[in-house]
Write a protein that binds this DNA or RNA. Sequence first.
DNA 1: GTCTATATTGTGATAGAC
DNA 2: GTCTATCACAATATAGAC
Lengths: 210, 210
Amino acid sequence: MYNTYVNPDSHPDTEKRIREAASKVFQLKGKAGASMQEIADEAGINRTLLNYYYRTKDKLFEAIFRDAMETFVPYLVSVLNSDRSFSEYIHEMVDTLINTLLENPQIPVFVLQELSTNPMRMANLIRELGVDTDQGLAKFYKEFTNTDLAGTDPRQIIINLLGLCIFPFAARSIITVILYNGDNQAFDKAMIERKEYLPAMILRSINYEK
Amino acid sequence: MYNTYVNPDSHPDTEKRIREAASKVFQLKGKAGASMQEIADEAGINRTLLNYYYRTKDKLFEAIFRDAMETFVPYLVSVLNSDRSFSEYIHEMVDTLINTLLENPQIPVFVLQELSTNPMRMANLIRELGVDTDQGLAKFYKEFTNTDLAGTDPRQIIINLLGLCIFPFAARSIITVILYNGDNQAFDKAMIERKEYLPAMILRSINYEK
DNA sequence: GTCTATATTGTGATAGAC
DNA sequence: GTCTATCACAATATAGAC
């Protein structure tokens, strides 16, 4: 057998631990607020190892940001491309979005912050991930006009859908403090109820008769 | 006349220029991403003057953040405390929020970012600004139950209201790129239409009969 | 792959002249 | 109030030993 020798000092999962640590710190403090030292400490490794694996902070962030996008963009794409009735479509989208956000509650602020300081990166990244937004939208528009809801710009509906699902997580801390007495579990419970509540609410808002 | 002497080097509006520059840079890059040098350059002054006026970066940020909050919190409070029908209440709130955000489109990301890294600051600030959230909510809850919309948790309605108004501005750049072909004016136009569209949409969503 | 040591630059902050 | 000079320190990044 060849190549069975392993450096006793090497940690085969170092890269994975770096990614997890970097993801945690970046999402908590933002790109500029995070330091390489902090990420190294969180990963339990020497700071210079970060440079060994990713050369620069910028490249490390790039990788982590891409990771974050890849955790939820494919879900959205699969819903966009699925063949479902408009009602099912709304149900699926709300369910997918809120489930993903319950597991990654920091993503909205993380993405929105990067989005505002670097608007082009995300647009490019979405294209790189192979998402054809025009096609997805065309499908939505077609489905939408089929339900004789004309008169309303379908783009407003898309903004509603995203805002209703994403905003509560973006403003999570203040919402929890003011509306739920600082009880994080109560917030999560409300979001789970929201999965049931939103689709009917949205369909009602556009006078959609099942 | 006393005290008419003015140092020829003095700029009586220096503090104002600092605040404007700091506000612009902080909103664009976030607290950690902004540097004192950059703010000084933007204001066209020497960097050490920032320390002269605000001693530390932290205190400067505190002042700017408070400024930002004070630009829209009072509006919300005045609506919260006004004596209006539920329908008028929704109209007023949407109008006030979107008008403020059209003039300060960067505020949502700015506030949300700070909110996620420093959750307590904003809760404290809201209290300091003299906003009695409990009273405002009590009023909303009462108004809400009067319209026999029981069965829905009124907190979900508040989250809807805020998300529908604030989210599009938080995600402004990506929405503009994907939905409006990168045309910023088209986005603004859509938000102005949204002022008309949202109140009716919200009232419909809760089966409210005028 | 992982460490120590070091280079280099950036940044917040203060002291002191004018 | 505004500037120059300077400080102390933190940050990213690289070189080189093991």
